[in-house]
Design a protein around this nucleic acid. Structure first.
Lengths: 252, 252
DNA sequence: ATCATAGTCGTCTTCCTGACGATAAACACG
DNA sequence: CGTGTTTATCGTCAGGAAGACGACTATGAT
């Protein structure tokens, strides 16, 4: 049976990416400067159209690779490579969200270790890592004193949803290790939690918790002093994905 | 700047609904029989096209009302009416998921109290509440002995995702009350947990937990014996939405 | 040598949970 | 009318986990 194109309205479908990382003790997101109208010159989340023969997560993985060079982890494989965690976040389809046409955007959330430098199609000046508070604040000024314009489209809402997802998900999963390099110390992992949650955690209780949770961390045998102080044991992420009981976020 | 229609492929966008309820101690989902090809005669999740001027949650609320007569709760208002909980679940966009054309489906999850009877556009024979295990089992036979065909499209996957979302979400939120009538007893709420999780819970510990969590339940002052036995206190859902500490699901 | 920095091990108290005994208030039935 | 059944509700106890925090260790910096 041939389909009837008049039976449904046509939509454009895009994927937008909330790419988070932890740099210098703060949670940062990848932003790209828009080169075209609307919102020309404003910062936005990276993203693009889904192609005709592409699945949604394929499109998200392709955009992630184009913007950062990162490969996405296949969640089904126990990959310990330098890939990023990638998952679907939510879909945004307000009829007014793009003034040009009806666009439905399937937002994805990516968590990556600290990277050397962003690249936006080879043009580094049009991409940057910015602290999420800076991207989300309404008006005001960034750390360099220049006034901050809100993100384009509804990207502030999408970013806020992605940050909230990351904050809650590291409570009950081992996802915080996605922010770390392949080998990391307990202290580095703790600083990830502190940056994402914006709180200070007791190093002793944190150490007891993460080393006492079976399958969370596996020691590699090596040590490092890259953080200064006494040498720390190096770990890799263990196979466990769900933390039970969860890591408790200090009360708001 | 006018937009260039050749710059992106056109998609159809639909909403599909996972509507869950608890009937006779088991978790049930709403299924409708397809009247058209493809999958004609097979059971599927209710859903339909998003209209040109409609937001996604508006479309989901409209479909929910058409299929069940339920109004969706506005999550921002503390409504205690007979509405259902409605939230976005996930989006499914495999290029092959609909043989006719490229369709992206934004699935939503609805939780409803036990309803008198479903209606599918007024035709009750084409809609039913079925236990989720029955809808999800591959092959085999239903309780009435008739062979069970898998759900149409990728709806089994969508239903499984919705069930898993509901199972995990009642752990750390007060969402289980969405399965209950406006006034309910602790025992009725416990039977909701037991049906959704498929486990037996200790009535005494459950009672201690839910009545001891501030803001979860507020007593109405009334009592009922509709379950038999000693009269039980009636409660309404309190304002609290997040349970901290969570309700612990017995180990798998 | 001394200090600062970070990591690691223990202790103690408090809270929460799971297991389970006991009592209370309704109904069904002989 | 007693007796059993069902459901609700309160209480007790032991074990585990978490927060607070003391103590010690192993590096580099001055």
């Amino acid at each position: 049976m041939p389909y009837d194109p008049s039976a449904f309205p046509p939509f454009a479908v895009t994927v937008d990416l909330v790419v988070l990382t932890v740099r210098r003790h703060s949670l940062c997101a990848l932003a790209v400067r828009r080169g075209e109208s609307p919102f020309k010159g404003r910062w936005a989340l990276p993203g693009g159209f889904v192609r005709a023969d592409e699945d949604l997560n394929q499109a998200a993985a392709r955009e992630l690779a184009e913007e950062t060079g990162l490969r996405a982890h296949d969640p089904s494989s126990p990959a310990q490579d330098n890939g990023a965690h990638l998952e679907q976040l939510a879909t945004y389809g307000d009829p007014e969200r793009d003034p040009r046409m009806r666009v439905v955007s399937v937002a994805h959330l990516a968590l990556a270790p600290d990277l050397p430098a962003p690249r936006a199609g080879g043009d580094a000046s049009n991409a940057r890592w910015a602290p999420v508070e800076e991207l989300l604040q309404q008006g005001g000024h960034g750390r360099d004193g220049e006034p901050v314009a809100p993100l384009a489209f509804d990207h502030a809402r999408i970013l806020a949803d992605g940050v909230e997802r990351a904050r809650s998900k590291i409570e009950y999963s081992s996802l915080a290790t996605a922010f770390c390099p392949p080998e990391f110390t307990v202290g580095e992992l703790r600083r990830v939690y502190e940056a994402v949650w914006g709180v200070a955690l007791d190093p002793r209780n944190f150490h007891r918790k993460v080393t006492g949770t079976p399958g969370f961390l596996v020691p590699t045998g090596g040590t490092t002093t890259r953080q200064g102080g006494r040498p720390a044991q190096l770990f890799r992420a263990g196979g466990a994905t769900l933390l039970n009981p969860p890591m408790l976020r200090p009360e708001v």
